[in-house]
Every structure is written in C-alpha cells, then in structure tokens.
Write a protein that binds this DNA or RNA. Structure first.
Lengths: 114, 114
DNA sequence: TGAGCATATGAGCACACGTTCAGATGTATC
DNA sequence: GATACATCTGAACGTGTGCTCATATGCTCA
C-alpha cells in the first residue's frame, strides 16, 4: 500500500491543476467508447465511404438490422452519425470529418503495431 | 425483419470488399477501448505532460495504486505506455506521439459538442 | 384504411470490465 | 538475511454492454 505516498509532490500538483474536468474526461471517454466496438467501427468505416440505410449496413456488418439499429442509436446519441429519412428507409452518414479523422488515426496506429 | 433485404446491392458489395479485415477492426477497437475509460484517460493525459511513477499517478487520478497498476497493464499490453524501473519505482511515459495525438483529437472532438 | 416493409425500442441474458481486497514479487537499506 | 516500501497479480463482486427476441412505430402504396 502506498495510497498516501507521493514521490514528486510538485509534479502531482501540476498535473492535478492541469487535468481536464471530470465532465470533459467523461465526454472524451464516451467518444472513444463509441469507437471501441467492432460492429460500430465497421458501420463507421462503411459510412466514411458511402451513405447507407440500416438494411445495407446490416448486410455489410453481418449482424441483424435490430443490432445495427441499436448501435446506430449509440452513434447518434454521441453525434457521430446523422441520418435522413428517405421514404421507409433511414439513410445514415458520418456527422463530420472529425469522425473520419479519428478513424483514420486509430487505423494508422493499429497498423503500425504488427 | 429485413435480414435478407438489400437496397443498394452494389454499394454493399463495394463496402464488403473495402472493409478492413476482422483482425484489423479488432485491433482498432482495442486501441479505442483502451482510451475509453476515465481513469486510463487521466493517466494518459498526465503522462502526456510528464513521466510519473505509479504512486504519483494514483494521486493524480484519485484511485488506489492497485487500480492504477491494473490499468497500466492494459495500457502496456496495448503499447500505449512504456516504463522504466528506477530503483523501487516504475516510471511510466507515453509510448509515442500517436497516443498524444489521439488524445488531443478526442479532446477536441469532445470540446466541440457543448 | 389496411397490408407490408423498414426501422426503432424494451426486456432479458451472457459476457466483459473496473474496482477492491489480499497477497505475491521485486528492490533498496540496514 | 531481514525489514520496509513500491509495484504487480489473482479472485471476487457489482455494473455496464451487445446481442437476440418480441413488439411497437413510421412510412408507402394499393
């Protein structure tokens, strides 16, 4: 146990002062959490190339359209995707380029560690 | 139910062909998953500014050093942090600039959505 | 309006995750 | 070697997550 022990008190104080707020940390964690599921990643990768409806996303990802719909809700709530009704269908697209950028960077980082 | 229904067969075929491999998707998901926990984020944010030992990281993040150690293992396994022994202590640092870059981009994205 | 398809939602289950607690390993100092 | 401190590890517990199944809502066309 060393809960009370601090080696570099100054550094700790600096870090505590510089740490982002609880709320901001949670907000960042939420975004990364949304990107941390294989099914959601496949959805986003597909949408980064072409707008697609729920049915087609189900075909691309290989899971049920119900499961896709559940995941799209998560992505919608996080503002990572947006959608437009087209008759019976709902056509989804990436919310903005930040999302594609995050995807690209994650992919790049994953690629480097063979 | 519309499991078998496909609206835009060509687009689906294109996406299926362009989708990254199962393995690569998992690898990307793993990295984002590592970034999706508030405690781990706080650890990484602190390390992006200064190298710190486990005890001081515990003080900065506000959790037990045991919990920090568990999370550091996750980050080590993902190659997001590296460490060097300094006597009794283990001093951790970010593995590379990619990590800081991902952090910055996630933070930026989180900041925009008030 | 009523049938049929696309999408959304709620409950439930299996599994994964983060923490705590207790104890093991490792390193320096005496 | 023995003690003290820092870190690591394994088990266990509560909680969250992603899927399936059943059902509800929305939209179109006859």
């Amino acid at each position: 146990m060393c809960e009370a022990t601090i080696v570099d008190a100054e550094a700790v104080a600096r870090m505590l002062a510089a740490q982002p707020s609880e709320e901001h940390v949670r907000s960042i964690a939420d975004i990364f959490a949304a990107l941390s599921d294989p099914t959601r990643l496949r959805i986003l990768v597909a949408l980064s190339r072409e707008d697609l409806c729920v049915c087609d996303l189900a075909a691309v990802t290989g899971v049920s359209s119900s499961a896709v719909s559940h995941q799209l809700r998560v992505l919608r709530d996080r503002r990572l995707v947006s959608f437009a009704r087209d008759g019976k269908r709902a056509v989804y697209s990436l919310a903005d380029e930040h999302v594609a950028s995050l995807l690209a960077q994650g992919s790049e980082h994953a690629g480097e560690r063979a």
